[in-house]
Simulated assay, not measured.
Amino acid sequence: MPSPLDLPAAQSAPNTPRERRRAQTRDEILNAALAVMTEQGVAALNLTEVARRVGLRQPSLYQYFDSRTAVYDALFERGMRAHHDLLADAIGAADTGWPAACAAAWASVRFAMDHPALVQLLFAGAVPGFVPSEQAYAPSLRTYELTRNAIASAVRHHHLHPAAASERGVALFVALIAGVSVQQQANDPDADLEEGRYVALLDPALDMYVGYFAPSRPTAWTPWPETGARTAR
């Protein structure tokens, strides 16, 4: 099981010894919560068990997180920030245009394989009724902008048709990545990145995306009209 310690800690650095101890305890609680989610199911998070693992009584845990929802929210924010940072690094290290978009796709699939329980919280709606706070959701919006900008760059480099940078074009790119990740996790969860049966489909799927949004399409080509039928006019 991948270590939850890979997740970034809180953004604001504590200034006093007391604040540092509190921040460290919060980190320990979140790491323990992620371990329990991994072992017992994302929606089955038990704060009594989390408190036991970090050496606290459950009432003391509420001094750090006032509810189970607050724990989910903090994990959501940190997970989304970790996902954003991985994609930003991958895009920054790749050539501009379509290679950067492909690098983002691979970084996202790698993240999903490294943190399967966390990904269920972030992307699969595994906790009924949980809605992240505005603060927790903010990194997701930044990640979408990263992805959209990578696709737009591919359009500017004439690697893709302009329709790829539309809302639905970006949504298809995201859905493609999510589909590979979910199928891998559901059907071949113990495989690594090099051996995963569904991960091996990512490059062919990306090739199909390029084919669908080939820059040679007519300028007025509409990929998803309201009728659901693809048209060119």
Rank of each mutant, 00 (worst) to 15 (best):
L201F: 10
Y137L: 06
V71K: 02
P223L: 07
A90E: 06
A93Q: 12
M208C: 03
N15C: 02
D89R: 15
Y144N: 03
W98S: 00
F76Y: 15
M208V: 08
A126N: 11
R22H: 13
A232H: 03
M80L: 08
V155H: 03
S181I: 13
A103W: 12
T25D: 00
F76N: 04
P2T: 15
T231R: 02
T222L: 12
S140W: 14
P99E: 02
L160D: 05
A175R: 15
P223I: 12
R26F: 05
Q24R: 14
M208I: 11
A175W: 14
P132V: 09
V127M: 10
E145C: 03
Y137Q: 05
W221K: 08
A124Q: 09
L61F: 05
S67P: 02
V182P: 00
W106R: 14
D114K: 11
H83L: 04
A70W: 07
A82H: 14
P189R: 14
A175M: 10
T25H: 02
M208A: 13
G125R: 12
D66Y: 10
I151Y: 09
V71C: 02
L75E: 04
H84E: 12
S153K: 01
Y64M: 03
H83I: 01
V50W: 11
E77L: 09
D85V: 01
T96L: 08
R18E: 12
L201I: 03
P14Q: 05
A154C: 05
R217T: 08
P99N: 01
L160Q: 05
S133H: 09
G228I: 12
R26K: 08
P14K: 13
F76I: 04
P99C: 03
R81M: 02
T16L: 07
A44D: 15
A94I: 11
T147N: 10
V42Y: 06
Q40C: 02
R68G: 06
Q40T: 12
G211N: 13
A124N: 02
H161P: 06
G169C: 04
N46M: 06
A232D: 00
G55D: 05
L122S: 06
F111Y: 15
A13L: 15
A163S: 11
R68I: 15
V42N: 05
Y64T: 11
V170L: 06
L61I: 14
P8H: 11
D6P: 00
V71F: 03
L146I: 15
A136W: 11
P132S: 01
F130R: 14
D85P: 00
Y64D: 06
E194N: 09
R168A: 09
V210C: 09
A164W: 10
D85E: 10
D207Y: 10
E226T: 13
V182W: 04
P218K: 14
D190I: 02
V119D: 00
S181T: 12
M80H: 13
L5G: 13
D207F: 10
N31M: 04
A101C: 06
R53Y: 10
I177A: 07
V109L: 13
A105M: 08
T227M: 00
Q135H: 07
A186H: 08
Q11I: 13
A171S: 15
V42M: 07
A94R: 02
E19I: 14
D203P: 00
A107V: 07
Q58F: 04
L146V: 02
T143G: 04
Q63I: 08
N46I: 11
L141G: 02
Q58R: 15
A178L: 11
T38D: 08
P99A: 03
A90H: 04
L75Y: 11
E145R: 15
G79D: 01
A136T: 10
A124L: 09
